[in-house]
């Protein structure tokens, strides 16, 4: 999962900022493009899953790397 069009580093931010910043970043992308999101808020794991379900954007992957949470989301 290395290909992405844009990256958002939401490290250090707490709920609901990672979601709100991701929403803004997705607005700048075209349909089908992929946003990589880095977050440190443990609540963001469930939140990005819920965000994708409710907005139609596709959560391609959700994982943890060296204490950070990495998400790849494809814009609907």
């Amino acid at each position: 999962m290395a290909d992405f069009d844009s990256e958002l580093d939401a490290s250090g931010l707490n709920c609901p900022l990672p979601i709100l910043k991701a929403k803004k970043a997705l607005q700048g992308l075209a349909s089908g493009q992929v946003l990589k999101i880095i977050a440190t808020d443990p609540g963001s794991v469930k939140d990005f899953d819920s965000f994708a379900k409710q907005t139609g954007n596709i959560l391609l992957s959700s994982g943890e790397e060296g204490g950070k949470f990495i998400f790849f989301m494809r814009k609907a």
Binding site: C15, P16, I19, L20, K23, F51, Q54, T55
Partner: peptide, 9 residues
């Protein structure tokens, strides 16, 4: 928080 998040959804 709820207002901004709901709007984002």
């Amino acid at each position: 928080i709820l207002g901004s998040t709901a709007a984002a959804l």
